[in-house]
Amino acid sequence: MTTATSTQRGGFGYRHPRVRLAGLLTAPMAWLVVVYLGSLAALFLTAFWTVNDFTGQLVKTFTLKNFQQVFTNSAYLETMVRTVSIAVLVTVLALVIGVPLAFFMARVASSRWQPLLVALVLTPLWASYLVKVYAWRAMLQPENGVVAWFLQPFGLSGPGYGFTAIVITLTYLWLPYMILPVYAGLTRLPDSMLDASADLGARNGRTLRSVVLPMIFPSVVAGSIFTFSLSLGDYITAQIVGGKTVMLGNVVQTTYVTNLPFAAAVATIPVIIVLLYLLVVRKSGALENL
């Protein structure tokens, strides 16, 4: 077909593939560089400035004061540790819940049920973030929430608002982001490999450990990047179900108007943590599975 019509289609772009490529990519690349990387650079630069005590406006003189304040003050260090712990816990919980679920969807459920299950996993993503968080706020109410009511017969009290509530809510919010990549990874796993493993005498546990897990590991890492980085940057959940507990995002929110350089210094921390995480997982090949 190409050869048949090439004479009519032999326009400028066709004869100059490099120009065509440049034409196609300039706009999106400019977007990426200017808007995304540019704002990141501006953020980082701002972190070295300070504000005028009288007018509260930016003063562009170089100082390390903001970073010093963030890294020497025990309150902020605590928040940093707390935020990372929340992100790690959410990721672990999403793994524990998400991987078996994805396995069931991809390998156990009949092909008639598969699309329905995928749709069910996706459904919560269609609802507004705020609606979901407020729903959890209602459910986690300390005295008369659903969770407290459910735990009462066992002599337990609900978690109330705070650290646990944040972890539960974020896990719920980001779970689909774990399930979907793992599900995709599992569907790509060829049956022949599992058959071969069985033929060679491996039991289910051995197959899981030696065949399935190494094959889906990159997908799991891909899912964990989502759950980890999404949790790390969140602040609205902490505001709604966190009670007194705050995350790094809340510190940024409290300070960004009056002390932008300090907020920028705080906002740089999650960026660095995520970058470090990405560097580590790059080796696993997970980034190709995103």
Partner: peptide
């Protein structure tokens, strides 16, 4: 929502530049 959060951080950085 995360995107919104990320965008707002980016927006602040830009706003900072423009307002100053």
């Amino acid at each position: 929502m995360k995107t919104a959060a990320a965008c707002s951080v980016a927006a602040l950085a830009l706003a900072a530049c423009s307002s100053s």
